[in-house]
């Protein structure tokens, strides 16, 4: 029961099928990585799980601790415990980072309960320190004018503040230099716990040097074509995705 389970998931956008019967199970306490060439459906998987309305689920299900996510609205999925760290986080002009996170935290409280502002700031400052973020970021508009690396750090900050039971990280390494990558990975590693599952989507093996996965899956043409231990990522790095073609796993 305590897992994020994707069952035979198929989804399309504008009539084109992108996910074609994908199955995958991430138990709590584990980190799973999904790797795959461009266009294999990695980002689609993340968006479909979060409930993006451009995609139509044609078959299958996604269960969070046994509950179907597909019947929930986007925000309900989030409050249920699913977090998506975006590849391209949106900018929200005029809304400060702190207010945004306060609103997100407030949305998780029962009606009539208010968050404790002092405790909130204490917490956000300590997490920002951990991520090497300047405290002035609390007052800046969400992601507006942030560099690529600042945006990704901000995603991890939000994840730390919202404490989801399952986090999907979509290409969190893209746009990061090595120092930023290390900091982001440390943030993620600090959140690893028996009560939390991670699905780390990446094109490159590099991120997995710092966030060491329990399992690695290869996504191609909307399906998981190979699963293995962390060594699979190294093998892919070394041999490239073409190697899988030669194995007959990817249609040439």
């Amino acid at each position: 029961m305590s897992s994020l389970e994707i069952i035979n998931l198929s989804a399309s956008i504008n009539g084109t099928e992108i996910l074609k019967g994908l199955s995958l199970k991430v138990p709590k306490g584990e980190v799973h990585a999904i790797m795959g060439p461009n266009g294999s459906g990695k980002s689609t998987l993340a968006k479909v799980m979060a409930g993006h309305e451009d995609y139509i689920v044609t078959d299958g299900d996604v269960l969070l601790d046994g509950k179907s996510l597909l019947e929930m609205d986007i925000d309900e999925r989030s409050r249920e415990g699913l977090f998506l760290a975006f590849q391209y986080p949106a900018e929200i002009p005029g809304v400060s980072n702190a207010n945004f996170l306060r609103a997100a935290r407030q949305a998780r409280l029962p009606e009539g309960e208010e968050i404790d502002a002092v405790a909130f700031y204490k917490e956000i400052y300590s997490k920002m320190d951990q991520l090497g973020m300047d405290r002035k970021f609390t007052g800046r508009s969400v992601n507006e004018g942030f560099s690529g690396g600042e945006k990704k750090r901000n995603e991890v900050l939000q994840m730390m503040m919202l404490e989801p039971s399952y986090a999907v990280l979509d290409e969190t390494d893209s746009g990061l230099d090595i120092d930023a990558l290390k900091i982001v990975a440390e943030g993620v590693n600090a959140m690893r716990s028996p009560d939390r599952g991670f699905l780390v989507i990446t094109h490159y093996q590099r991120l997995l040097d710092y966030i060491v996965p329990d399992h690695v899956h290869v996504l191609s043409d909307g399906q998981i074509i190979k699963s293995g231990s962390k060594d699979l990522a190294l093998e892919l790095e070394e041999k490239g995705y073409d190697w899988l073609k030669e194995e007959g796993l990817i249609k040439a």
């Binding site: 979060a50 409930g51 993006h52 309305e53 609205d73 986007i74 925000d75 999925r77 989030s78 409050r79 977090f83 998506l84 975006f86 986080p89 949106a90 900018e91 929200i92 945004f100 609103a103 997100a104 949305a107 998780r108 939000q158 919202l162």
Partner: peptide
């Protein structure tokens, strides 16, 4: 923007 904010639970 709306998708992003809703994903955070709003």
């Amino acid at each position: 923007q709306i998708f992003y904010m809703k994903q955070r639970g709003l």
